[in-house]
């Protein structure tokens, strides 16, 4: 449940960046703006808001509510007790710590593996390039659980089940597409002449990469890292299968929470789980999508 929700938040952030374009288009056709159209628009927006924001609002209310009985519109009693109980619960606190360990490690490992590949995809034309690039989607094309079950078979024979490395690998799988495709596009957007010019004034190939190519691709790489972080952070199925009983992260803990704890505790946990998405996405919008770095790309 939480994974789906977070992707919704992520997409919302990306679409918002494109909004101004849509707005100028609408302004060109004022004749369309009849009263009826307006009304339909308002109704649609309200429905969408209720559909998307409604559950979040309910979650917020639930996390702080004490007594809340059926006919009441708002809880009659507010409390922080559920937050306290979550942070006091040893296994829940431990899972929070674990999640914040796994996600950065997976992101960095993914970057180390995928960024050189992305550079190669963008700069060299080798046989099978296209096929390889598309095949990265394969992991997303099949039902994840099926993939994980067969992975579990391999992991058992390699003694990776229930190990730290096993969980890192299973979370890594989901990040590969983002970490390869987005940086590939970022590298490809950099004109080769910028690299050649750096060679020309005396920089060797490595220095060219770190002084010219990497800084220019950095916004794209940052977006890829944020997405990978969130994918790893929210990964539940594979982590559950490979990690139990030793490594229970926040999303896998949700399974237990939903079944064994009062639903207020689950609400608190959901909010905690959403915090990284909201923070990272607003950071990405503010510092990566607009601003100086993107402007620099106007130069050909």
């Amino acid at each position: 449940m939480s994974a789906v929700e977070h992707q919704g938040v992520a997409l919302g952030g990306l679409e918002a960046a494109e909004l101004p374009v849509a707005r100028t288009n609408r302004r060109r056709r004022p004749d369309m703006r009849t009263f009826g159209m307006k009304l339909v628009g308002i109704v649609l927006v309200v429905v969408l808001l209720v559909f998307m924001v409604g559950p979040l609002v309910w979650l917020m209310l639930r996390a702080f509510s004490g007594l809340w009985q059926f006919p009441q519109f708002l809880p009659s009693h507010w409390t922080l007790a559920w937050w306290r109980s979550v942070f006091d619960d040893k296994s829940l606190a431990h899972s929070i710590r674990l999640s914040f360990e796994f996600a950065p490690i997976v992101t960095i490992a993914s970057a180390c593996i995928c960024l050189p590949a992305a550079y190669a995809f963008s700069r060299f034309n080798f046989p099978g390039r296209r096929v390889l690039l598309v095949s990265l989607f394969a992991t997303n094309a099949f039902p994840k659980i099926g993939l994980y079950i067969s992975m579990a078979g391999v992991f058992y024979s390699l003694n990776l089940m229930g190990t730290f490395l096993g969980v890192v690998i299973v979370q890594l799988i989901g990040t590969i597409v983002f970490m390869t495709w987005i940086p590939t596009a970022a590298f490809s957007a950099i004109p080769r002449s910028l690299e050649e010019a750096a060679r020309d004034v005396g920089a060797g190939p490595l220095r060219v990469f770190f002084r010219v190519t990497f800084p220019l691709a950095a916004p794209g790489i940052l977006v890829a890292m944020i997405l990978s972080f969130l994918v790893a952070f929210d990964e539940a199925q594979g982590t559950f299968l490979v990690g139990i009983p030793n490594y229970i992260t926040m999303p896998t803990e949700m399974y237990t929470l939903v079944l064994n704890y009062p639903e207020q505790a689950a609400a608190v946990f959901s909010i905690l789980l959403a915090i990284p998405s909201v923070v990272l996405m607003s950071f990405a919008r503010k510092h990566v999508m607009g601003g100086k770095l993107a402007e620099g790309f106007q130069i050909r």
Partner: peptide
Amino acid sequence: PPERRPTAMVFQNYALWPHMTVFNNVAFG
């Protein structure tokens, strides 16, 4: 390789580094 030749090139699209100021573009070498 280009970095070891006593030549300097002005590219058709200028190939200025957009993340550096004019000063840093010129000073890089």
